[in-house]
Structures are given as structure tokens and as C-alpha cells.
Amino acid sequence: MKRTRQSRWQSTILIFFVISFFVGLLLPGQAHVVREMKQTYQNQDPQDLIRVIKDLQQHKQDLLVEETDMSQKVMQYLRSSDDTAAQVNQLQHEATALKQRTGAVPLAGPGIRITIREQSSGSSPSILADEDLLLLLNDLWASGAEVISLNGIRLTDSSSVYRAGLNVRVGEKVTSMPLVIDAIGDTENMSKGLQIPGGVLDLLNLRRIGAIVQKVNLLRISN
């Protein structure tokens, strides 16, 4: 009688152990799949996808324009004099410029660092909008920035930048606030370009988003 009770108790323990072990074994696999699925396009916010498509379409348009320009240049080279050295120099110059734009080479030099902080607490939080960020980046490019990085993520011609919830998505990478934007280029021009009255910095201040601009003698932006 005692033996039967003991063996029943043992089998109960064994059943519990086996079933909980089985459930535990499947849990990490399931969590892994769910995490992976969240990263696929199928499960992303349609608005984010629309932005990605728009960015890609814009990029395609830009590339087509660039291709036309390049074709014209090739035609010009073919028609022009056979000054090979000058042509080689010109091509090398263009290759360097293209490498910089595509982020193929790391760069170092003087520039500016902009630190942006949101006020997410309080009754009326101030959140950096997509438009603000794009305006700021476009102003930097227009003011002579050669290379820009966003929290260490280098921007190239094909980078898309937009808010994804509380985070900021730069291409395929995701970063969070506060944002530190490094821009290498003509320090004076960029600084003045940003501080134009009614410009992007005024707009951010108006919306209570803190933006600090610092001139830095040596910035390094890796590829």
C-alpha cells in the first residue's frame, strides 16, 4: 500500500517535471521567433512602411538624376581633349567625393555637435517631430556639412531618418533620444546656417526642445 502511494507520488513528480520542462524548452524558441517577426516588414507599422517606400522612391529618383549626370559627363570626357592627367584627376576627385557621400571612408575634421533633448515628462511633453529632424539635417547639408552622423550612425545619400515611436530610425538602425548629431564641414557656415533667425533652432526652442550647438575642433565619423 505504502509502495503504491510512493510510486504514484513519484510518477506525479515526474509528470510535472516533464511537462514543465517541455513548456520551458519551447518558451525561448517562441520568444525568439516573435522577436524576429517584429523585425520583418510584415509586422511593421504601415505608416513607417509608407515612409520607407517614399524614401526609396525619392532615392531612386535621385539615382536616376545622378545616372543622367554621369552619362553626360562621360560623353563630355569622350568629346573633350585627350588630356588624360586632367581627366584622371577629375575622376579621382569625383571618386573621393562619392566615397564620402556613400560613407565608404571614415572622416575626421572640424565640425559642430548638436545635442537635442526632448522634454518627455510634465503635462505637455515636447517631442521632436520627423519634420524638425529632417529640417535640421537638410539645413546642415545646405550649410556645407560634408558628413553627418546621428548618435554615431553615419548618414549617407541613401539614409532614411524618421521617428519610430519614441526612437529614431536611421536606415535599418534604431537609436534613441537624446540625439547627438555630429557634422564635419565648414564650422562657421554650419553654425550660422542653423542660427538664422526663424531657422530650425528657433523652431526647436519655440517648441521647448533643447538643442545645444558646440563647435568641435576634431570630430571623427567612422563608416
Binding site: 510535472f16 520551458g24 524548452l25 518558451l27 525561448p28 524558441g29 525568439h32 517577426m37
Partner: peptide, 30 residues
Amino acid sequence: FVTVCGLVLGIIIGILRPVHIPAVYSKYVG
């Protein structure tokens, strides 16, 4: 105690050697 032990052991082994669950069936497995 045995249940928690089994669960923890299963999770540890599941992390070290994850069981592959096809994404299509993940909802049903969940």
C-alpha cells in the same frame, strides 16, 4: 519546486539550444 526546476531547466536548455519554431506556426505554438 519540481515544476519551477523543470521550467528553469527547460528554459536554460532552450536558450542554449533553441528549438526552431517556423514563424508561420508561432502564433499557434504561443
